[in-house]
């Protein structure tokens, strides 16, 4: 049992937290701007590389410099929106999706051109689990990731429920027409969506980089689990995205558990398929997601 918790459940929760933070941005963009943003993962990568540069320059802990990277990345996201997405506000979703695809290629090329493709890391070496939690094996960085994710999620919750702009965002996500009629400034809402989405994406990316390493495809590789989490939770529902992210993360790790005998239930080479399968199954049987997200 303790093996199950230590080696399957805790890693699943850590991964789930990272997915969840990224998925909030995907879900909000999907809900408010009505398109699947393929560039979200590469926005994340960009933020991580900015963090890496700041860490190399200052020698500070990644979490201390991450806010600067978040600000710069948010600025980039807003600028990209202004230049490449705004012309398509009233076009079909496919135009925005293809524009985001082009953006994905462009951002990745810039990252590779500036920083190269070699692996880098924010934190070096191997950590030992926290002694005071025995027999639970929890690494300090995992405690940091889980705590950080919870703090950010609470902050998002407060933003969405207590502030005027947050309420406007939820209203726009639920019903854009109605929100506009009620006098909500859609452009402000959209700007805020990009800022919030990229801040959370950078946070997820930095957490992932602390856990593993920094490379140019790291964000792109998270894209599908993030989409899956957003759909699982219900499009446009930030809380649903959090739940979806946790579920996808945990299920991915548990799929390798030897439920029957000593062989893994599912060959780990099919691990990437877990997120897809959940996603497709949800779309077919419960497209509104777990939390009654927006239906198109």
């Amino acid at each position: 049992m303790i093996t199950f918790i230590n080696f399957y459940l805790i890693p699943g929760v850590v991964l789930g937290c990272i997915y969840a933070l990224g998925a909030i941005g995907v879900s909000l963009t999907f809900g408010i701007l009505r398109f699947a943003n393929f560039a979200h993962g590469d926005i994340m990568t960009f933020g991580v590389y900015i963090t890496l540069t700041l860490v190399l320059l200052t020698g500070a802990h990644p979490l201390l410099v991450a806010p600067v990277a978040m600000a710069l990345t948010a600025l980039l996201a807003v600028a990209i929106d202004r230049l490449f997405y705004r012309p398509f506000r009233s076009s079909p979703a496919i135009m925005l999706m293809i524009a985001s695809l082009g953006m994905m290629l462009m951002i990745r090329s810039v990252v590779r051109f500036i920083w190269g493709v070699q692996l880098q890391s924010l934190v070096r070496g191997i950590e030992q689990p926290l002694a005071w939690l025995e027999p639970l094996r929890l690494l300090p960085k995992h405690l940091l990731i889980i705590t950080g994710a919870v703090v950010l999620m609470v902050a998002v919750h407060l933003l969405l429920t207590r502030t005027k702009i947050g309420k406007a965002m939820r209203a726009t996500s639920d019903n854009a027409e109605l929100a506009r009629v009620c006098g909500i400034d859609t452009e402000t809402v959209i700007r805020m969506t990009w800022i919030l989405g990229s801040v959370l994406a950078v946070a997820a990316g930095v957490f992932l980089a602390i856990d593993t390493h920094v490379e140019t495809m790291m964000g792109f590789r998270l894209l599908v689990p993030m989409f899956a989490a957003a759909i699982l939770g219900g499009i446009g529902k930030p809380y649903g995205a959090v739940a979806g992210g946790l579920v996808i993360g945990i299920v991915e790790e548990l799929s390798a558990y030897p439920w029957i005998g000593t062989e893994p239930l599912l060959s780990p080479s099919y691990k990437a398929g877990v997120a897809f399968t959940i996603m497709v199954a949800m779309l077919i049987w419960r497209p509104q997601g777990l939390l009654h997200g927006r239906r198109f």
Binding site: F7, D211, M217, Y257, P268, A272
Partner: peptide, 24 residues
């Protein structure tokens, strides 16, 4: 003791490693 394929480029392989270790 155990032989497993894994999909490259995933952010975590903790579960895979644990399953490999548990097989003997």
């Amino acid at each position: 003791t155990a032989s497993q394929a894994h999909e490259p480029a995933k952010p975590s392989y903790r579960a895979e490693v644990a399953t490999l270790a548990s097989a003997g």
